[in-house]
């Protein structure tokens, strides 16, 4: 169970990064390392163009930045995607779709959030309808800061994520699975009765491994 006293989401990131720096690939067998290496070489991206940040996603795939050389390529549906990119602020309406898309992705899955809006609402911090702290609703693996972050920054973020995958660090999806009640409670606070359907996650609690 998630404890309130512990750090939340992105706040843990630095600590975790630091903690892992010292013990490279520690505790992993050859197979796991190979798997991690293969996984990080191939990231299928579901780019969720929620806000203005979506504009920066397109150049990423073009000749100038060519994300494909890192094995990063777009996916059409959440079923095929490994990484969900939240590009900018989230309204309540879009959050619902984001959550549903995220729950439909197959593990291992990661979330990259772009821009400050996903961290604290950014310039929309006092909007009545904007989600201010994305990490309360879905587990974010990587924040890419900026308003908006340039494609170079995006690539930076992706490579950082790849590095973490290679090292076999637990992804956000494990956190989501472990703390599903907390996430759902947060989501319910926003949506009220208008929750996304339960059938996309309720198997978590049925103890399936």
């Amino acid at each position: 169970m998630y404890h309130k006293s512990d750090c939340e989401g992105f706040q843990c990131e630095q600590r975790m990064l630091e903690a892992n720096l010292g013990q490279d690939d520690a505790g992993l067998g050859v197979v796991e390392r190979l798997i991690g290496w293969l996984r990080q070489r191939s990231l299928f991206v579901l780019a969720y163009g929620t806000g203005c940040g979506a504009i920066e996603m397109r150049p990423l795939m073009t000749s100038r930045f060519d994300a494909e050389r890192f094995g990063i390529i777009g996916a059409a549906t959440p079923r095929q995607a490994d990484v969900l990119v939240i590009s900018g602020y989230l309204a309540v309406k879009t959050l619902k779709r984001v959550i549903r898309s995220y729950e439909q992705m197959q593990e291992p899955k990661y979330v990259i959030a772009l821009g400050s809006c996903t961290i604290n609402g950014g310039m929309y911090w006092d909007s009545y309808n904007t989600i201010k702290c994305l990490d309360h609703y879905i587990p974010v693996d990587m924040y890419i800061n900026g308003c908006m972050p340039r494609p170079e920054a995006l690539i930076e973020g992706f490579t950082a994520l790849q590095e973490r995958i290679r090292r076999g660090e637990p992804g956000g999806y494990q956190r989501y699975r472990d703390n599903i009640d907390w996430y759902k409670a947060n989501q319910r606070r926003v949506f009220g009765d208008n929750m996304p359907p339960a059938y996309t996650y309720d198997w978590y609690s049925e103890g399936a491994t």
Partner: peptide, 15 residues
């Protein structure tokens, strides 16, 4: 695992 509902479809985020 088997989808919990026939409506568990990737449908552009819609339900």
């Amino acid at each position: 695992r088997r989808a919990g509902s026939p409506y568990d479809l990737s449908f552009a985020g819609e339900v």
